[in-house]
Write a protein that binds this DNA or RNA. Structure first.
Lengths: 80, 80
DNA sequence: TGACTAAGAGAATCTTAGCTA
DNA sequence: TAGCTAAGATTCTCTTAGTCA
């Protein structure tokens, strides 16, 4: 289709292969939609560090208290 | 220049304006280079949540013990 | 049938040239 | 001079058509 109004199922297979082989990357709009469907923040896909990836994946589901705990650890360490 | 072999200083000004006005976004290679220069992980730029952004910004500088503490909080909460 | 690839179409950014305060 | 914009050149992805196991 001419106008890009969503993800076209008929070309999903070639695109996935192009991503996997490294020939192309998904463009930003596609990345956003993938993340919506997957229920993860966009930042998650740009993460090389596995530990950081876990944090990003679960951060939004943390309780307020646990978010505070994490931020405290991070900001205390940032001072030094 | 024909070949894209880096960030061209002579067109930096229009590009920054195009990013600021929302007319264009930086392409992925440019984003990577910007993050190298800024010393932040790529994921940092894709972060809407300020708390999470702080975590990403400082995570790589945490001590091993503090990384473990953070991961513990995240994984405990993920179970429920 | 499903996984994968090549090549052209289409859409996005980058560059140049020029305008505005 | 610095900041900003328009439009074409360039580069990249997406689609189609087709091959291969």
């Amino acid at each position: 289709m001419g106008i890009q109004a969503g993800i076209d199922p008929s070309s999903a297979s070639p695109r996935m292969n192009q991503y996997e082989t490294g020939k192309h990357r998904p463009d930003p709009k596609t990345i956003e939609k993938l993340c919506e469907v997957l229920g993860v923040p966009v930042a998650y896909l740009y993460c090389e560090d596995d530990g950081l990836a876990q944090i990003i994946e679960h951060y939004s589901r943390l309780t307020k208290k646990d978010k505070e705990k994490v931020l405290k650890i991070v900001s205390q360490n940032a001072k030094s």
